[in-house]
Design a protein around this nucleic acid. Structure first.
Length: 426
RNA sequence: GGAGGUGUCGCCUAGUCCGGUCUAUGGCGCCCGCCUGCUAAGCGGGUUUGGGGCUACAACCCCAUCGAGGGUUCAAAUCCCUCCACCUCCGCCA
């Protein structure tokens, strides 16, 4: 939720930020009008209510005729108060909805435009030249089959399209990646978490996933609960309605959790393999910090993502995502995209967002600062590893001509010391 | 799933039966001041959060807030209903 005060005092700035995302200022105008209506309604109600309370105080002391008269007056007033309160509640709700519809204003530094208007910040590692090495790379589906690591056919048989089993070396790889990621995060001072992945609407709405993104979310039939698409949701909602002692900031959490996505609207996209699936496990970093520190923390999260990809010896680039592609909550977002040899392009492996005070305002999370001041705080999130995509990149990048896959040195201790994943029979 | 209990402004707690004087009690913690050679003790004061008005975004005034939402009433922490969370016991179960 954007700051109502900024909206009221500087609506043009909010409109400019909307324009950067390619959106009109209509939502801003609607919120502004709702704000005016709301304040009028509040004034009406409070005036009547104050009068009612005044009269109410006199009643117990009054006697006889005076008392009867007071009762008569306050009785009619009671109806007015009730009507005014209803009007106030409605105006308030309308205002809230209008505010909720406005995305987080993009950061000044974020590139303007849509999906294709990202800016490349940096490139890392070296793409493998299979032509020079003299063999044609296999894609992860084929490698997964050879290694007995990924079973897509049975995944589809049991659960449908975009499902899979990780088997043998594939399953081992998941646990190795998870443990390695948790070790890295723990070493950086993160608190490890295993959060619930079934949440109430509040958590979903608070993190901005019930707006345009609602189509992508699994809702439990007959229940007011949702399966989360990322542990960002339970991690952000973890401190909802709390006032955090500023001394404890930044608070860094790292969670392991399954993630569920309907992938509505991505029909025909990435249909082969496990690059885009309805369920996957992920290790996610999440930070609560001050608004002042948020941009720097964002770079720290990016740093940890890069450290991770470096250790896996992947070739990747970092992009600064354009305003129109930020989603509802983020003011700025960096994606790390790894080179996928058989696709011949960079694909998103990790992503880190600075959500400033957008989520905390919605979730009622604030900080108590020096002098007792209660002020908004910021949330940020970043992927350490999303298992299937990491496996895709690893297998394809480190494959050898015979179908075996080299294990990066940093990962070996987590894979029982294995230096190589080798083809298995049948 | 069944039975019972609990939910008060950081923590603990009074108040709820019998609605109005609750402008929510007291303790702890915390903050400010006094006292003190320093510390401790003592003394005095302050200490929920959100919103509105007015404004220097101060002070001040007002409204809401006793788990959440409804209802009864001139008036609700207090009475009624629904929901949520937690606790105890029973049943079932990974």
């Amino acid at each position: 939720m954007i700051d109502p005060r900024v909206l009221r005092d500087d609506p043009d700035r909010v409109k400019a930020a909307q324009a950067k995302r390619g959106l009109s200022g209509d939502a801003v105008d609607r919120a502004l009008a709702a704000d005016t209506a709301r304040r009028t309604a509040i004034a009406d109600f409070e005036r009547l209510r104050a009068e009612q309370k005044q009269l109410g105080k006199q009643i117990p002391q009054a006697q006889g005729e005076e008392r009867a008269e007071l009762l008569a007056r306050t009785k009619t007033l009671s109806a007015d108060v009730r009507a005014a309160e209803t009007a106030q509640t409605e105006a308030d709700e309308e205002w809230r909805q209008a505010l909720l519809a406005i995305p987080n204003p993009a950061a000044e530094e974020a590139p303007a435009g849509g999906e294709d208007d990202y800016a490349v910040i940096s490139e890392h590692g070296t793409k493998r030249d299979f032509e020079a090495e003299g063999f044609t790379p296999r894609d992860h589906v084929e490698l997964g089959k050879i290694l007995g690591a990924i079973d897509i056919e049975r995944g589809a048989k049991v659960s449908g399209s975009r499902f899979y089993y990780l088997t043998g070396a594939g399953a081992d790889l998941e646990f190795a990646l998870v443990n390695m990621a948790l070790d890295q995060a723990r070493g950086a001072g993160f608190t490890t978490m295993v959060p619930p992945t079934l949440v109430r609407p509040r958590a979903m709405e608070g993190t901005g996933f019930l707006g345009q993104a609602a189509d992508d979310v699994y809702r439990i039939e007959g229940q007011d609960t949702y399966l989360v698409g990322t542990s960002e949701v339970p991690l952000a909602a973890y401190h909802s309605d709390e006032i955090l002692d500023a001394e404890t900031l930044p608070r860094r959490y790292v969670a392991f959790s399954p993630c569920f996505r309907k992938e509505a609207g991505s029909h025909g996209k990435d249909t082969r393999g496990i690059f885009r699936v309805h369920w996957f496990d992920k290790v996610e970093m999440f930070t609560y910090t001050t608004l002042e520190d948020a941009a720097e923390e964002h770079l720290r999260l990016l740093g940890w993502e890069k450290e991770w990809l470096d250790k896996l010896e992947l070739a990747y680039r970092v992009i600064d995502v354009a305003a129109g592609d930020l989603g509802l909550s983020a003011a700025r977002k960096y994606d790390c995209e790894a080179w996928i040899p058989t696709q011949g392009r960079y694909r998103e492996l990790t992503s880190t967002s600075d959500c400033t005070d957008f989520q905390t305002r919605r979730l009622g999370i604030r900080g108590r600062f020096e002098g007792g001041d209660v002020k908004p705080v910021a949330t940020l999130n970043g992927t350490l590893t999303a298992i299937p995509r990491t496996i895709v990149a690893l297998l394809e990048t480190h494959q050898q001509a015979d179908g075996s896959v080299r294990v990066p040195a940093a990962l070996q201790p987590y894979l029982q010391g294995r230096e190589l994943l080798e083809p298995v029979l049948g």
